[in-house]
Lab assay of single mutants.
Amino acid sequence: EPLWIRPDAPSRCTWQLGRPASESPHHHTAPAKSPKILPDILKKIGDTPMVRINKIGKKFGLKCELLAKCEFFNAGGSVKDRISLRMIEDAERDGTLKPGDTIIEPTSGNTGIGLALAAAVRGYRCIIVMPEKMSSEKVDVLRALGAEIVRTPTNARFDSPESHVGVAWRLKNEIPNSHILDQYRNASNPLAHYDTTADEILQQCDGKLDMLVASVGTGGTITGIARKLKEKCPGCRIIGVDPEGSILAEPEELNQTEQTTYEVEGIGYDFIPTVLDRTVVDKWFKSNDEEAFTFARMLIAQEGLLCGGSAGSTVAVAVKAAQELQEGQRCVVILPDSVRNYMTKFLSDRWMLQKGFLKEEDLTEKKPWWWHLRVQELGLSAPLTVLPTITCGHTIEILREKGFDQAPVVDEAGVILGMVTLGNMLSSLLAGKVQPSDQVGKVIYKQFKQIRLTDTLGRLSHILEMDHFALVVHEQIQYHSTGKSSQRQMVFGVVTAIDLLNFVAAQERDQK
C-alpha cells in the first residue's frame, strides 16, 4: 500500500453525458421521505430548503428570480454533511469501515464536522487534520463531537509532509485500522450531490432553472449537481466560483495573481482535486475576500440567511453572472454553511477592521482624538531585521541585547519573508524542534498583521487588541530589464502597544 495517494490523481470516472444510468458502476440512493420521529440526527441530513432572495437581486438590477439552496440546514450545519454520511455509508457497505475503526480526514473543517457527527452516532474514533487558518468555532464544535484535532501550517503546499493532507496520511500509516475516506478522491463525494442535492433542486424548481452558481473546494458539490442538471435540464448554465489565490478556475489566465492566501474558508485549493470535473462548468468567476464577507453580511442583514463567507462569494458572483438572465428565468445559488463557524471572524466588526474589510468610518461609535491620525505620526525608528541564514542562537542574543521581542526576517534585497519572535524561538528550542545552530528560517511564521503608514491609529489599535505587534510595510514598484514591473513589500518598522501608548501619553502631556 502506498504511503500516500495524491489528492489530485487523474480521475478514473467514466461518467458521460447521455450515458444510461443503468451502466453506472456505483451504488445510487434515492431521496427517502422522513418519518415524523427521526431514529437519529443523521436522518436530518439532506432535504434542505430552497429560499427566495428578495432584496439583493433587485438591489443589483437582476431581472431573474434568485433562489438560495440553504445547505446550513443540514444536521452539522453545512453541505459537507451529505458527503460525510455518504462516504461512511459506502465504506461500511463495501466492508472497508468496521466497528471500532478510526476515521482520519484532512479538511478545512466542515467535512470534519460532518464526519465527527456521523462518527459520534456510529461509534468510530475520528481524527481531523486541518490548517491553522480555520476558525476556532470549527475546532470547538469538533472537540465537542469527540474528534481529535491536529493543526497544520496554512501556507504548507498540499504535497508537503507538513500539509493537512501529508499529516493525515502519516497518521494513517501509524494508526492500525485507520482510514482516510479522502473527500478529494472519493466518488461518494460527487455521488452524494448527484443522487440527492441535484434531485432536490430539480424537484423544488419543478425542473425549471436557467443558471446554477456554486463555490468550489473539493469540487464534489458542483460536479455532482452539474452532471445531473446537464442530464435533466441541459439549458442550465453552470457557474463556478473560485477565490483569488486558488488555481481551480479555467482558463488558467484567471488564476494569475501574486496573491497566495485568502481568508474565506472551505473553497479554493492549490491543486485540482480528483473529484472535480471542470468540463461540466460553463464559466468560472474569481471572487475576493472583501466581496465575500460584504455579501455574507448582506445576506444575514437583508435576507435573514445566517450563512458563512463562501455563501457571500457565491452570491457576489451570482449578481454578476445572472445579469444575462431575463424576467421569468431563474438562478439558484448554493449557500454551503452557517455563520456559526465564523462568529469571531467576519461577523465581528473588530475582525473586519483588522483585516481591512471594514473602515473605521463605517462604525458610528465615538472615537478618541488620536483615532484618525496616521501611523506615520508615530515617528517610528528604523527596524531591526535579520536574514533567514542567521542562526536561532545568534538571533536570540541580538533580540535580548537590543531589547526586542520580535524581528522581521528579510532577504538580501529587503523583501519581507516573515517574522521571528523570542517566545516562538525559545519554545521551539525547548520542544526540540530546532537547535541553536539551525537557521532562523526554520522558525519563520507568517501569521502576523501588516499595516501601512497611511493607515489610521484606530486601525492599529484594533490590531493591537488581539496581537502583540504589527509590521509596518510599504510597497515598492521595481522595474526589470524586460520592461515588466513587480510590486514588493518592504519593512518600514515594527509597532507595539507600548509605542502607541507612549505616543498618546506624550501628545497629551505636551497639550497640557
Score class of each variant (00 low, 15 high):
Ile239Met: 15
Asp242Ile: 01
Ser246Pro: 15
Ile247Thr: 12
Leu248Asp: 01
Ala249Asp: 01
Glu250Leu: 11
Pro251Cys: 07
Pro251Thr: 13
Pro251Phe: 01
Glu253Arg: 12
Glu253Gly: 11
Leu254Ile: 01
Leu254Val: 07
Leu254Asp: 01
Asn255Glu: 07
Gln256Ser: 11
Thr257Met: 12
Thr257Glu: 01
Glu258Thr: 15
Gln259Arg: 14
Gln259Pro: 14
Gln259Val: 15
Gln259Leu: 13
Thr260Ser: 12
Thr261Phe: 15
Thr261Trp: 08
Tyr262Gly: 06
Tyr262Val: 05
Tyr262Asp: 03
Tyr262Trp: 06
Glu263Pro: 01
Glu263Ile: 05
Val264Gly: 01
Val264Trp: 01
Val264Lys: 01
Val264Phe: 01
Glu265Tyr: 05
Glu265His: 01
Ile267Asn: 01
Ile267Pro: 08
Ile267Leu: 05
Asp270Asn: 01
Asp270Pro: 07
Asp270Cys: 06
Ile272Asn: 04
Ile272Leu: 09
Ile272Ala: 01
Asp277Leu: 06
Asp277Ser: 08
Asp277Ala: 07
Asp277Pro: 04
Thr279Asn: 12
Thr279Met: 11
Val280Cys: 15
Val280His: 01
Val280Pro: 09
Val280Ala: 10
Val281Ala: 08
Lys283Ala: 10
Lys283Val: 10
Trp284Ile: 03
Asn288Arg: 10
Asn288Leu: 11
Asn288Trp: 11
Asp289Cys: 01
Glu290Trp: 15
Glu291Asn: 12
Glu291Thr: 08
Glu291Ser: 14
Ala292Pro: 03
Thr294Trp: 12
Thr294Asn: 05
Thr294Asp: 04
Thr294Gly: 15
Phe295Ala: 01
Ala296Phe: 07
Arg297Val: 04
Arg297Gly: 01
Met298Cys: 12
Met298Thr: 15
Ile300Gly: 01
Ile300His: 07
Ile300Phe: 08
Gln302Phe: 09
Glu303Phe: 05
Gly304Thr: 04
Leu305His: 04
Cys307Leu: 01
Cys307Val: 01
Cys307Gly: 08
Gly309Ser: 05
Gly312Leu: 05
Ser313Ala: 10
Ser313Met: 04
Thr314Cys: 05
Thr314Trp: 03
Thr314Asn: 06
Ala316His: 13
Ala318Phe: 03
Lys320Met: 11
Lys320Ser: 12
Lys320Tyr: 13
Ala321Gly: 12
Ala322Trp: 01
Gln323Lys: 10
Gln323Leu: 12
Glu324Val: 13
Glu324Met: 10
Leu325Arg: 01
Gly328Tyr: 06
Gly328Val: 10
Gln329Met: 13
Gln329Leu: 09
Arg330Gly: 03
Val332Asn: 04
Val333Gly: 01
Val333Arg: 05
Ile334Ser: 01
Ile334Cys: 01
Leu335His: 01
Leu335Asp: 04
Leu335Asn: 05
Ser338Pro: 12
Val339Tyr: 08
Val339Phe: 07
Arg340Thr: 01
Met343Glu: 01
Thr344Val: 01
Lys345Ala: 05
Phe346Ala: 04
Phe346Gly: 01
Phe346Ile: 11
Leu347Arg: 03
Leu347Cys: 14
Ser348Phe: 05
Asp349Trp: 01
Asp349Lys: 08
Arg350Glu: 06
Arg350Trp: 12
Trp351Pro: 05
Met352Ala: 04
Leu353Lys: 15
Gln354Cys: 04
Gln354Ile: 01
Lys355Arg: 12
Gly356Ile: 13
Gly356Tyr: 07
Phe357Ser: 01
Phe357Tyr: 09
Leu358Tyr: 05
Leu358Phe: 10
Lys359Thr: 14
Lys359Gly: 06
Lys359Asp: 03
Glu361Ala: 01
Asp362Val: 14
Asp362Tyr: 14
Asp362Ile: 01
Leu363Asn: 07
Glu365Ile: 14
Lys366Phe: 07
Lys367Cys: 15
Pro368Tyr: 14
Trp369Phe: 07
Trp369Ser: 01
His372Arg: 05
His372Asn: 10
His372Asp: 14
His372Lys: 01
His372Met: 04
Leu373His: 15
Leu373Ile: 10
Arg374Tyr: 03
Arg374Cys: 10
Val375Pro: 01
Val375Asn: 13
Leu378Ile: 01
Leu378Asn: 01
Leu380Pro: 11
Ser381Ala: 15
Leu384Tyr: 05
Leu384Asn: 09
Thr385Tyr: 05
Val386Cys: 14
Leu387Arg: 12
Leu387Ser: 11
Pro388His: 07
Pro388Leu: 14
Pro388Trp: 10
Thr389Lys: 15
Thr389Phe: 15
Thr391Val: 14
Thr391Asp: 01
Thr391Tyr: 05
Thr391Asn: 12
Thr391Trp: 01
Thr391Ile: 08
Thr391Glu: 14
Gly393Arg: 11
Gly393Val: 14
His394Leu: 05
Thr395Lys: 09
Thr395Tyr: 15
Ile396Val: 10
Ile396Glu: 08
Ile398Phe: 13
Leu399Gly: 01
Arg400His: 09
Glu401Pro: 14
Glu401Tyr: 10
Glu401Val: 12
Glu401Leu: 04
Lys402Met: 11
Lys402Ser: 14
Gly403Ile: 07
Phe404Met: 11
Asp405Val: 01
Asp405Leu: 03
Gln406Tyr: 07
Gln406Ala: 07
Ala407Cys: 12
Ala407Ile: 14
Ala407Phe: 10
Pro408Arg: 01
Pro408Met: 01
Pro408Gln: 10
Val409Asp: 01
Val409Gly: 08
Val409Arg: 01
Val410His: 11
Asp411Leu: 09
Asp411Cys: 12
Asp411Met: 15
Glu412Ser: 10
Ala413Leu: 12
Gly414Glu: 14
Val415Asn: 01
Val415Lys: 01
Ile416Glu: 03
Ile416Arg: 08
Leu417His: 13
Gly418Thr: 08
Gly418Asn: 07
Gly418Arg: 05
Gly418Met: 01
Met419Thr: 13
Met419Gly: 09
Thr421Ser: 09
Thr421Asn: 01
Thr421Ile: 11
Leu422Val: 13
Leu422Arg: 12
Gly423Phe: 11
Met425Thr: 15
Met425His: 11
Leu426Gly: 11
Leu426Tyr: 15
Leu426Ile: 08
Ser427Glu: 01
Ser428Thr: 11
Leu429Thr: 01
Ala431Gly: 13
Ala431Ser: 05
Lys433Ile: 07
Val434Ser: 01
Gln435Trp: 09
Pro436Gly: 11
Pro436Ala: 11
Ser437Ile: 10
Ser437Thr: 04
Asp438Ala: 01
Asp438His: 12
Asp438Met: 12
Val440His: 06
Val440Lys: 04
Gly441Met: 09
Lys442Phe: 11
Lys442Met: 12
Lys442Arg: 12
Val443Phe: 14
Ile444Arg: 12
Lys446Ser: 12
Lys446Pro: 09
Lys446Leu: 11
Lys446Asn: 13
Gln447Cys: 13
Gln447Ile: 10
Phe448Ile: 12
Lys449Ala: 13
Lys449Gly: 06
Gln450Pro: 01
Leu453Arg: 12
Thr454Met: 13
Asp455Met: 15
Thr456Phe: 12
Thr456Ala: 12
Thr456Val: 12
Thr456Arg: 08
Thr456Ser: 08
Leu457Pro: 05
Gly458Ser: 13
Arg459Ile: 15
Arg459Phe: 11
Ser461Val: 13
Ser461Lys: 05
His462Cys: 09
Ile463Gly: 11
Glu465Phe: 05
Glu465Leu: 12
Met466Lys: 13
Asp467Leu: 07
His468Lys: 08
His468Met: 15
Phe469Leu: 10
Phe469Trp: 10
Ala470Trp: 01
Leu471Ile: 15
Leu471Pro: 14
Val472Thr: 11
Val472Glu: 11
Val472Ala: 15
Val472Arg: 07
Val472Gln: 13
Val473Cys: 15
Val473Ile: 01
His474Lys: 05
Glu475Val: 14
Gln476Arg: 05
Gln478Trp: 11
Tyr479Ala: 11
His480Arg: 09
His480Pro: 08
Thr482Arg: 13
Lys484Glu: 11
Ser485Leu: 10
Ser486Lys: 14
Ser486Asp: 11
Gln487Glu: 10
Gln487Pro: 09
Gln487Ala: 11
Arg488Ile: 15
Arg488Ala: 11
Gln489Trp: 10
Gln489Cys: 15
Met490Leu: 11
Met490Tyr: 14
Met490Cys: 10
Val491Trp: 10
Phe492Cys: 09
Gly493His: 11
Val494His: 01
Val494Tyr: 01
Val495Ala: 14
Val495Leu: 09
Val495Lys: 04
Thr496Lys: 06
Ala497Cys: 07
Ala497Asp: 15
Ala497Glu: 01
Ala497Leu: 01
Ile498Cys: 01
Asp499Leu: 01
Leu500Ile: 14
Leu500Met: 11
Leu500Ala: 13
Leu500Glu: 04
Leu501Ala: 06
Phe503Glu: 01
Gln507Gly: 14
Arg509Met: 11
Arg509Glu: 11
Arg509Tyr: 08
Arg509Cys: 11
Asp510Trp: 14
